[in-house]
Write a protein that binds this DNA or RNA. Sequence first.
DNA 1: TTAGGGTTAG
Length: 564
Amino acid sequence: MKLPLNQCRWFSSSSSPSTSLPWISPLHYIKPVTPKLNPPPETSTVQRRPKFITHEAALTMIKAERDPQRALQIFNMVSEQRGFNHNHATYSVILHKLAQSKKFKAVDALLRQMMSFETCKFHEGVFLNLMTHFAKSSHHERTLEMFFLIQPIVREKPSLKAVSTCLNLLLESGRLDLARKLLVESKRGFDLKPNSCIFNILVKHHMRNGDVDSAFEVVKEMRKCEGSYPNLITYSTLMGGLCEGGRLKDALQLFEEMVSKDQILPDVLTYNVLINGFCRAGKVDRARRIMDFMRKNGCQPNVFNYSTLMNGFRKEGRLDEAKEIFAEMRNSGLESDVVGYTTFINCLCRTSKVDEAMSVLREMKEKGCRADAVTISVILGALCRENRFEEALEMVDRLPYEGVRLNKACYRIVLNFLCKEEEMKKALYLLGLMLGRGFRPHFATSNQLLISLCNADRVEDAITALNGLIEMGFLPEDQSWLQLVESDKHSIRFIPFCKLYVHKVYFLGPALLAIPIVEACSLLVNISEHNSFHLLHELNQAAGYLHAKESICVTLNTLGDLIC
DNA sequence: TTAGGGTTAG
């Protein structure tokens, strides 16, 4: 039952009849508040008692806070409450938030706190999470360090899951040195024996490096090691590696060995490795037969299998068959996912059936399957290949408002085409759009755009574009910069950009000669003594041509002053 | 957040 507001415990109405006395909570009689420490506000009769924030409430607040600094403030604030101690959950959520924002110093401070002061029970999950964050930020030593922190903070030895997670992250980053250290220490320090998962990570590593022999050596070791044995994942990984190296026959032989020798039954993933292997080798008919085989053996193909095969036909230019596969997938009662649709859309786009592709895109939307940046990239590329730039621009403009997340590739595909076709007006429009949304064009495209604008006598537009690009951290390459300055030789419009080039004094020459000497000198203040002499040389070289001897004399004097 | 699969562009 809801209490009327004026009777509510934590609420005191200003229209209360006893305005001279503050409202006192019954709790105050049990636990009086010292007036000196917490004086009631003189102007109000309200005395609010701060609500105790529970762990659950703290978790919600920290999770909801987008700013990591403020999240940490919340974390610290709640810990000041009498009787409150942070637990695994609250530490876990704040560490995740801080690591996600790369606030690693704050992470370190909290880890020290966990190690030195906290008595609650922590679980190793928080360290697995931190490992991932450090790996993402290329702090690989710290990934390994998180593994070694498990024992002192969790007060238990790390699990095999911790070894696997760490090993996988280190090997994916190419840090074999650290991976070795991890394996050695796991055995020596914690007496951990590798399981199938750990061996499989090693098999994958060797196969990715194309070292098939080492991968099979690992499998041999695996059979010798108690508690570990090759499983379906081992075989799939091996078959994938063999297929990638073009050894399809060996992959099939291994498949048979897996079934007969180890009596392991393949699943949809295993079959997909083979289907993809044959498709990549251009043997799409055999890939199709593998799919028939799997059906006959009681393994129904899934969307991955159909997409793989469809793409196989697409790559061979057999687009009607690719479409048949898509239809077959639907007839089997499967709903396509975004990759399946994208593969199909790509088939249509590659046969200049962009309108049909657009209608499939609409169908996706109707079915609640959201197109992603890859889907849109495919369609944008197709539209641009047909010079349908306005439609492409309209899509790029509209889709983010419809919840489709475009990436830099979507913008770059269109911008590259526009620059190539010298559609400068549209290119400028797109540049504005992408810069406004925080996407930077490709370095080469940016340079090309600026040069094309100058060539088209659109110097003002080039300056606008340059301003926008520079704000995003772009600096034109030397050749483009020279061309920009040259295109505006008798004007001073590029001078404001000269300060970006003080480290490349050669490029200041033409621009400086085109501006009043006072401005030139003010720029020179930023130039080192060594570079000043180079500049003087450049100016002397250019002087005859530009009749700027007088300017040079003044420059010399100025430089003389600067050098002294 | 312990190991294996499919889509674009460059």
